[in-house]
C-alpha cells in the first residue's frame, strides 16, 4: 500500500477509535451515539437472526429494478436524442438544470397518484438515475472521434454496424461513468424515499428505529448502509478508473 493509503487508513482508524473512546468515557452521551464496536456487534447479531432479510431483499430489489430500467431507458433515450440534433438543442438546457431541482419533492405526489407501494419508489429511483445515464450517453457519443465514422465508411459498414461495432465501444468508458452514477443516484433516492415514507425497506427500518428510540438497532442499520454504499461506490469507482485508464480518458 502507498504511503498516502497508509496515512488515510490511519486517519480513518483514528477517527473511529476517537469516537469509541469518547463514547466509552462518557464524553458522548449513550443516548446520542453508541460506540462503534457496539454498532458492529448489534449489526452482526441482527444479520445472523435473519430479522433484516425481508427489508434487505426489498430495498435491493427496488434498487436493482430502478437502476436496470434507468440504464436501459437512459441509453435508449440518449441514442434517440443524439440522433436528432434539434431535440438535442432543445433538451440541453433542461438536462443541464435537471439535477439542480430537488426531484425528491415530487415523491409525495407520486405516492398520491400510485398509492403507498414500490411503484412510486421505483419511479423516484428512475427519475434520479435515468437522466445521469442520458447525459453520459450523449457525452460518450459526442466524443466518438469523427475519424471513426470515416473508418466505418472506408470499410463500408452500415449504420447499425457502425453503431454497434464502433460507436458503442468508443463511447463505452463514458457509458460506464453513467452506469456508476445511475447506481449511486438510484440507491440514494430509494433509501431516501423509504426513509420519508414507505411500508417497508431498510430506510424505513432506520426511521422506525429512530421513532422507537431504539438507538442500538438504528446505529447498526446506519452502519450497514454506510458500509454497503461505500464498498459499492469504491468498486464502481475502481472499475471506472480501470476502464478510463485503458482508454486514456479522464473519468468524470
Amino acid at each position: 500500500m502507498s504511503r498516502v493509503g497508509v496515512i488515510r487508513l490511519i486517519v480513518v482508524i483514528a477517527a473511529i477509535g476517537l469516537l469509541e473512546l469518547a463514547c466509552r468515557l462518557g464524553f458522548i452521551d449513550y443516548r446520542t451515539i453508541i460506540p462503534p464496536s457496539e454498532m458492529t456487534t448489534v449489526l452482526v447479531r441482527l444479520l445472523a437472526s435473519g430479522e433484516l432479510n425481508s427489508d434487505i431483499a426489498r430495498t435491493f430489489g427496488v434498487v436493482v429494478i430502478a437502476v436496470a430500467i434507468s440504464i436501459v431507458l437512459g441509453f435508449a433515450l440518449g441514442l434517440l436524442i443524439h440522433a436528432v440534433p434539434r431535440v438535442r438543442r432543445a433538451l440541453d438546457p433542461l438536462l443541464a438544470t435537471y439535477y439542480a431541482v430537488p426531484i425528491f419533492i415530487f415523491y409525495p405526489v407520486m405516492v398520491a397518484i400510485f398509492g403507498l407501494s414500490i411503484i412510486p419508489i421505483v419511479l423516484i429511483g428512475i427519475a434520479a438515475a435515468a437522466v445521469a445515464m442520458i447525459i453520459a450517453t450523449l457525452n460518450g457519443l459526442d466524443r466518438v472521434p469523427r475519424v471513426l465514422t470515416k473508418v466505418a465508411r472506408v470499410h463500408r459498414m452500415g449504420p447499425l454496424d457502425t453503431a454497434l461495432r464502433l460507436k458503442l465501444p468508443a463511447a463505452a468508458p463514458h457509458l460506464f461513468t453513467g452506469v456508476k452514477l445511475a447506481v449511486s443516484y438510484g440507491f440514494i433516492a430509494v433509501i431516501a424515499s423509504e426513509f420519508i415514507l414507505a411500508p417497508a425497506g431498510l430506510g424505513r427500518a432506520i426511521a422506525d428505529a429512530y421513532s422507537d428510540f431504539n438507538n442500538r438497532k438504528m446505529y447498526a442499520l446506519i452502519l450497514l448502509l454506510l458500509v454497503f454504499a461505500t464498498c459499492m461506490n469504491m468498486a464502481l469507482h475502481a472499475w471506472d478508473l480501470r476502464w478510463s485508464a485503458r482508454r486514456g480518458v479522464r473519468p468524470q
Binding site: 498516502v4 488515510r8 446520542t32 440514494i188 433509501i191 426513509f195 446506519i222 454506510l226 461506490n233
Partner: peptide
C-alpha cells in the same frame, strides 16, 4: 489532498439521509 480526497468522495456518494437521525440526536 491526497489523503482526504477519496474520503470526501466516499462521503459525497453515500445516502446522507441515513445520517439524519444522528444529526437529530445531536
Amino acid at each position: 489532498g491526497a489523503v482526504g480526497e477519496p474520503l470526501l468522495v466516499a462521503l459525497y456518494s453515500i445516502p446522507k439521509i441515513t445520517l439524519y437521525p444522528v444529526i437529530l440526536l445531536i
